[in-house]
Design a protein around this nucleic acid. Structure first.
Ligand SMILES: [Zn+2]
Ligand SMILES: [Zn+2]
Ligand SMILES: [Zn+2]
Ligand SMILES: [Zn+2]
Lengths: 138, 138
DNA sequence: TATTATATTGCAATTATTTGCAAATGCAAT
DNA sequence: ATTGCATTTGCAAATAATTGCAATATAATA
């Protein structure tokens, strides 16, 4: 990889933002520094950074792919499909799971930003209430 | 959901194919039975089936999203990023992992076709060889 | 510095997926 | 069969993401 490119600026941007950004958001953020940069260049730069393991790429169910800088200490997420709430979990338990799979299969897992979908506690409670309501309603 | 629609035909197709199909492949498969069907209808039908938990939707790193019928007995995959090889794993270990996370977070995980990326055994061996070669080469 | 090889970029075209909206269809109750 | 309502569909347009290729920039080498 070469040192001077959009890559560096993207990394700086992502390290400031510290969030999950879409390619378009990254594009708009870096335009202040590189007004002429092309969107496809951003896509390709992000792709490079992902391949290098510096940035995570994920579909969090929002309609477009999001990118995040991989700081030290991996994390993962639980995304509620009812309310969209995003919960963050550490790498410990995930890493134990990966280790077990690796032991069983000899496959070296590198997934660094796992996204699991489901229902958060609040929404579970809400649908429980709803169920009770339906039962007593008629 | 209504009984007569592309949904049923898609389910039949997927149960015959028993594979990971792209939306385009599904589209082409069902055209024999529904010559006039529109691609966006297929997308929407697949979306419905995914929401109903009858079909899984996944990005397996091939460039387009793939769909698969969810038969009883969930399975998951390990995808090698070097050779593209796809390994299948059962739900047991994954389910244990999910249970642990659910216990810790109260979050109910519904992910039904987990895709983990990494390097398969053969490719690990190959890169080991390569490393040795580099070391002795100079 | 001049030369060469490789990586990066812009631009336009292509592919993949989603969406708005009006028309068509299926279902159920007259 | 007719009406009323919700779902499904086609079509075109909008978004997202990827790719080919020629031009440019960078790094390494001579
Ligand atoms: Zn994250
Ligand atoms: Zn929720
Ligand atoms: Zn599968
Ligand atoms: Zn492999």
């Amino acid at each position: 990889m070469r040192t001077s490119s959009v890559d560096q600026i993207i990394i700086e941007t992502l390290s400031k933002e510290h969030a999950h950004l879409t390619s378009l958001q990254v594009f708009e953020e870096i335009r202040s520094q590189l007004p002429a940069v092309n969107l496809s260049t951003v896509y390709r730069a992000l792709e490079r950074l992902v391949k290098l393991g510096k940035v995570s790429i994920s579909d969090m169910g929002t309609g477009s792919t999001v990118y995040e800088l991989l700081a030290d200490g991996l994390h993962h997420h639980l995304v509620c499909q009812k309310c969209g709430n995003v919960m963050t979990i550490g790498h410990e338990e995930v890493s134990r799971f990966f280790a077990t799979i690796q032991q069983q299969t000899q496959f070296d897992i590198v997934t660094n930003h796992l996204i699991l979908f489901g229902t958060c506690k609040a929404c579970q409670a809400a649908s429980e209430l709803q169920k009770d309501k339906t039962t007593t309603d008629n």
